[in-house]
Amino acid sequence: MIVRKALSGCFTLFLMCLSLLASAQQQNTEKGPVNEFFRSNGKIYVVVGVLVIIFLGIVLFLVRLDRKISKLEQRQQP
């Protein structure tokens, strides 16, 4: 059950990567407020984005670990 869940999760992730690859074929030269923002100030906001993604990933990991431990604690209660 868990293995199947993990496998389907991996597959979804793989599909997402594929679609990202397909859309990333041509260089991004578009204008627009979001692109302008990330290119401003020597592109420092790209680094900020990278750090925010890493930090949120770690937080997500911690939240899941926290929930798993809570579940174990509840199961061990008489």
Binding site: N41, Y45, V48, L51, V52, F55
Partner: peptide, 22 residues
């Protein structure tokens, strides 16, 4: 019970963003 964890995450998001851009 977990408000302080949310607080920690919000504060750290603020410090990462502001710490690099102010």
């Amino acid at each position: 019970r977990y408000w302080w964890k949310v607080l920690a995450v919000l504060i750290l998001l603020y410090t990462i963003i502001a710490g690099l851009t102010i």
